[in-house]
Structures are given as structure tokens and as C-alpha cells.
Design a protein around this nucleic acid. Structure first.
Lengths: 154, 154
DNA sequence: ATCTATGCAAATAATTTGCACAGCA
DNA sequence: TGCTGTGCAAATTATTTGCATAGAT
């Protein structure tokens, strides 16, 4: 799904395509993981030196509006953005080592169905970051937060 | 589970209990829904006029460290905090009307098991906000923000 | 030519930190 | 009394907005 595809679609839909928008889209698309506005900006600068951080924010907002990127609430810190590929997917994020794994949407189907049948609630889980521990880190049995009464890990 | 319970536990664990901490804890505990730092501050002021917003942030951080409150990433905007009751629970948040419903943890058990067996991943879904549409809003077939180009569900 | 997007700068939010003093254990 | 927590103010960080102009269609 080349960028030109998105571009053609957007142009046809009457949106104005500027180099800034194309570059930002490209960066978000090829950026692995999830980028903050700042990271996107840094990645764009080499190709478009005078681009302003405000434009990044505006463009990311616009890309959300047209459905090409989605923000990912990853807990604390600044918002992160990711390109929305055709198929919905989710992420497993290891809280110990930071490892991320992408998983399909199918695993949430059962959950969605249950929410619908039990609560008549139609869940919109487009893009979920599921925190936890990966297999490797589960084995480090570790006696973490056996906290004596102070000293907090950060 | 009266606040004094938590207080006793914390004192026993060697933490220092100040009126500020007790009031903040109390506010978060009785505050329905999820409060931002600012909202907590506003709620505390009547009882403790000179409390500073920085203290709120520090206290909320501390309450997280001792496991009494948890931050809830509710998408965009400032972080929200909620008291952690004994049993884990989650929330259904309607994106149309804002209605929130609390649901038990059991509905996620199957999901957790699948993640464990398929990905060897131990999910930590302490506190999940699940966006979607409630039954009432599903019926308003809605032609919401009919954007000239097309339209995406959010 | 028209109208929207951009750059710039400044405003606003949201959160953190340094430091001297207050107050809990 | 000895530390730790607090208030205050200022520093950071994150995001948004007004306005004149550049640039896409």
C-alpha cells in the first residue's frame, strides 16, 4: 500500500496535499513503533528543514481526521501516533523490557461479543496497547517491588 | 474499607501520613469517575486551602507507588486517577454520550488466558477503559459528523 | 484567483523541580 | 530532633492558537 495510494485517495476526496503532509504521513507510516509529535518532527526535519512543530501537530490531527493515523494512549507521557493499516491490530507491551509484539484483532473478538451480549455495549477497540510481561521477563522470577517502605524504582 | 484502614496500613509500612495525603486519598476514593490532578486539587482546596498543585501531583505519584490509585489513560488530555479498590474492574465508556459503566474483571479472564497460551504473555489489565457505544447510542443510527469527504468512526 | 495550510511566535496546558521551612514520627 | 513532605515559584514539557503569507488546486 504505497503512500501514493493514500495520496490519490485524499486528493480525490478534496483534501489539499502539501509536501509537509506527505512527509509526515510517510514518517508515521514507516516509523516502527509509535512516535510522539516530537519524534515525528525530528524525523521530518532532515527532509523538510523549516517545518514547524505546530504543523506536525496540525498534520497529525488531520491525519487522524482522515483516518490514516491513530493516537495510542500508552499510559503516561506525550501522545503517540501510529499509521493505521488496513487491518486492526493491537500490541503487547512488556513493562519490564519494553518489548512490543503486534497481535491480530481476532483475539479480541470474543471479548467484543461478550460485551455486546452482556452489556449491549459495542466496543471500539481499534488499537489497544496491552501491558504485561513477556515470556522472558516472566521467568526472571524477580522479587520486585518487595518494597521495604521506601525507595521507589522509577 | 474506610480510609483509616489504608491509613493504618501505610503508617505500619513506615510511610508518613500528612493531612494532605489523607485528604487527597479521600478525594480520589470518593470521587466518582476519574479525576485529573486539577480536579483533585479543586476538590481538596475547600478542606485544605493552601495545598499546592505540585503537592497533588507528588501525592498522586506516591499513591500510585503504594498501590492505592492508578492512572487511567483515557486517550487524549491529562491523566486521570482512580482509587484502586480491592477487586480489579474496568470501564465501558460511551464515546457518544459519555456514559460510563463499571464491569468486573472476569470478562477479561478468557482474553488473558489466550494471551498467555498463544503469546506466552502475561497481561496486566488492572484497569481498562474500553471505548465504544452504549446500547442507547447504538440505536441512534446517527449520521454523526458527516464529513464532506467520507466519515470514520472514531 | 481562491482558499487552505504553513511558519513563526506567543499563549495555554500539564507536569516537574529546587529550595527553604513546616511538621510527622 | 531528624528527615521527609510541603508550599512557592520557576522551569520544563506538551499542545494550541492568531495572524500574515506561501502555496496547492
Amino acid at each position: 500500500m504505497p503512500a501514493s495510494d493514500d495520496a490519490a485517495r485524499l486528493r480525490k476526496q478534496g483534501y489539499r496535499l502539501t509536501p509537509q503532509r506527505l512527509i509526515v504521513l510517510d514518517v508515521v507510516k514507516r516509523g516502527e513503533g509509535h512516535l510522539t509529535a516530537d519524534e515525528v518532527h525530528a524525523a521530518v526535519v532532515p527532509q523538510h528543514p523549516y517545518i514547524n512543530i505546530a504543523t506536525i501537530y496540525r498534520t497529525l490531527q488531520w491525519l487522524q481526521d482522515v483516518g490514516l493515523v491513530a493516537p495510542l494512549a500508552i499510559g503516561t507521557g506525550p501522545l503517540r501516533y501510529e499509521y493505521v493499516w488496513g487491518e486492526t491490530h493491537h500490541h503487547l507491551v512488556c513493562q519490564d523490557c519494553g518489548y512490543e509484539q503486534e497481535i491480530g484483532d481476532d483475539i479480541l473478538l470474543a471479548l467484543k461479543e461478550q460485551l455486546q451480549s452482556r452489556y449491549a455495549f459495542s466496543a471500539q477497540l481499534h488499537h489497544l496497547a496491552i501491558p504485561g510481561r513477556c515470556s522472558a521477563c516472566q521467568q526472571n522470577t524477580d522479587s520486585k517491588d518487595a518494597r521495604p517502605a521506601q525507595e521507589h524504582d522509577v
